[in-house]
Design a protein around this nucleic acid. Structure first.
Length: 532
RNA sequence: GGGCUUGUGGUGUAGUCUGGAUAGCACAGGAGCCUCCGGAGCUCCUGAUUCGGGUUCAAAUCCCGACAAGCCCGCCA
């Protein structure tokens, strides 16, 4: 049992047995109190009971210290015993063991139409999705990541037509030109759509080949952020394998007709499946897509911008009709700039590649300021690690449903709650470990500063669980900051090397810290650096 | 018009799901700390729950209503 679990249980048993013996009826709520009140609180506020402080205190022993204030019972875990439990748990590997789960989970993220390089609004999707996938995987699930590539539909056909007419060099511009005069090209776009929908192999293959090139532009940026996909699912698959047709058949009892177009209805909401020209809409193909997910995975999460909320509600309605309940979405709010919503026309789009470049450059400047002992290659490597980590961290650290206003100054501020701080504390720890010359026996005796760091470390399992249960990858970033901060305090108070009896124990504490940090870095997609 | 989301110090945020004690953190501002393993660090100070009702012994947290910001309501994706 992990340290907090073990001590929580011990406290609870002690409390329950006391209540039983005294015949006190009344339930308590147990939670971790705010700082200063100990490690666990039994809250009797709702109950009409009186607790005798002296009797409560008498429940204490060398592991637990009980105290009562009114209807609060606070329990403090012995620094020495708890620290020992944490360090032992870490050394045995138990602290980092979350077991394996049978469930297969699909995480779909990014899935942007490849009409141009990613901007920071879209990359929030990628970073949330990738971090989510990493933490679910660490927690023991069997995770697959998916990029759903649209190779059918109005936007895609417009992109393809645009590049045919105006060239592929600046494909974003070519795409835009179609939309500038959409009426002119509407017939041609529609013709392409019909061809695609008819399952025209030659046409679809050629579409796909060209789209792959544009998609590569998106994937290049993502790779710099250590984001890769297990799976690319092409939308046309659902036309070709007939599943769109079978969806429409399955829904047919509910389908109504509107001049040849087909829709289903829930309340006053109409959900169109088929246009009057016979082609299906994105929605219909997405139903087929999600049906496939539901069959192949136990659970599936799609990362979507908040603008898709009502869309997804409709999709859920359709899935519900089909008896599918294991698909869900994780929504995030937009990133805007101070000038408002990002818009190419207004020239306030921030591309991820620019953000990464700036962050790497900033990291490089900082390194040059403080280090003269590194070679050019090393500087390059470290600035890349720091810069890309800073980008990921800055985007993941906000709660997904919090709207973010992007500000260059803030985004490139490496002081405080930012990746360099966290990476710095890790580098300090590694630096100590690199100087360890000999090992000896651990002397089991902990002081408060050691206890504080170990206690922070011991929160890791419950933080991860909380993040997983609530789909909140931002919590890992926050925890990594708190942990780094705890380490910096420990670093100030506790010399490690050449500290006599304390040395080996502190070395192990530092090792445990770096191990925990590495876990967090792994999930946050940060490449650790021993030197920064 | 209907629906969804957000509102916490000067700024950016955590806590809100599951009500409880002194609302945590960062930036900015002020004051300190290098005879010691890396000062991108550490310590201290200043300063906040949008407004109005309600529920409750107790509300940042739950309910209702305003107000403000964003998003959605297409035979687009």
């Amino acid at each position: 049992m992990k340290p907090y679990q073990k001590f929580d249980l011990l406290s609870r048993e002690r409390m329950d047995s006391y209540l039983g013996k005294r015949g006190i009826k009344g339930s308590y709520r147990a939670y971790r109190p705010q700082k200063g009140y100990g490690d666990i609180t039994f809250d009797f506020q709702r109950e009409a009971v009186t607790l005798d402080p002296a009797e409560i205190e008498a429940l204490s022993d060398r592991y637990l210290t009980f105290s009562a204030y009114g209807k609060f019972v606070n329990v403090r875990y012995s620094t020495h015993e708890f620290s020992r439990a944490v360090l032992e748990s870490a050394l045995s590997g138990e602290l980092f063991d979350f077991g394996r789960r049978r469930e297969k989970i699909l995480v779909e993220h990014t899935s942007a139409n490849p009409t141009g390089p990613l901007h920071i609004g879209r990359v929030r999707n990628s970073i949330i999705g990738d971090t989510l996938a990493r933490m679910l995987s660490r927690y023991g699930y069997h995770v697959t990541t998916e990029y759903y590539v649209n190779d059918i539909g109005t936007q895609v056909e417009a992109l393809l037509l645009g590049t045919e007419l105006f060239g592929t060099d600046n494909y974003t511009e070519s795409y835009r030109k179609i939309y500038e005069n959409f009426d002119t090209y509407k017939a041609k776009v529609e013709e392409y759509m019909v061809r695609a929908e008819s399952g025209d192999d030659e046409f679809l293959n050629s579409s796909r080949k060209r789209l792959e090139k544009f998609l590569e532009d998106v994937l290049i940026d993502l790779r710099r952020l250590s984001i890769r996909f297990d799976l690319f699912v092409w939308e046309s698959e659902f036309i070709l394998n007939g599943s769109v047709k079978s969806i429409i058949d399955k829904l047919s009892p509910l389908i109504r007709d509107d001049n040849g177009a087909k829709y289903i209805e829930s309340g006053s909401e109409k959900m169109y499946l088929v246009r009057s020209n016979g082609t299906t809409v994105y929605f219909t193909r997405d139903i087929a897509h999600h049906l496939k997910k539901s069959l192949e995975y136990d659970d599936s999460i799609t990362v979507l911008g908040e603008d898709h909320k009502s869309y997804f509600k409709k999709l859920e309605y359709a899935m519900d009709v089909l008896g599918v309940h294991n698909v869900r979405a994780l929504f995030y709010s937009y990133i805007s700039t101070k000038e408002g919503k990002m818009s190419t026309r207004r020239g306030n789009v921030v591309y991820v590649r620019d953000f990464i470049d700036e962050a790497v450059e900033r990291a490089r400047e900082e390194i040059l300021k403080r280090r003269t002992d590194l070679g050019e290659n090393e500087i390059e490597e470290i600035s890349n690690k720091i810069g890309t980590a800073a980008v990921r961290y800055h985007i993941i650290k906000y709660s997904p449903d919090k709207p973010v206003t992007f500000d260059w100054k803030e985004a490139l501020n490496f002081d405080g709650d930012a990746a360099p701080f966290v990476m710095y504390s890790y580098a300090r720890a590694k630096s100590i470990l690199s100087k360890v010359s000999q090992e000896s026996e651990i002397v089991w005796k902990f002081n408060d500063a050691e206890g504080a760091l170990l206690k922070q470390i011991s929160l890791y399992p419950e933080v991860l669980e909380d993040a997983v249960v609530h789909s909140r990858p931002d919590k890992l970033a926050r925890f990594s900051y708190d942990l780094a901060s705890s380490f910096n305090q420990f670093y100030r108070d506790c010399p490690v090397l050449d500290s006599g009896d304390d040395t080996q124990r502190r070395i192990e504490i530092v090792r445990t810290f770096t191990k925990t940090m590495e876990e967090l870095f792994q999930m946050l997609g940060i490449q650790a650096s021993d030197k920064i």
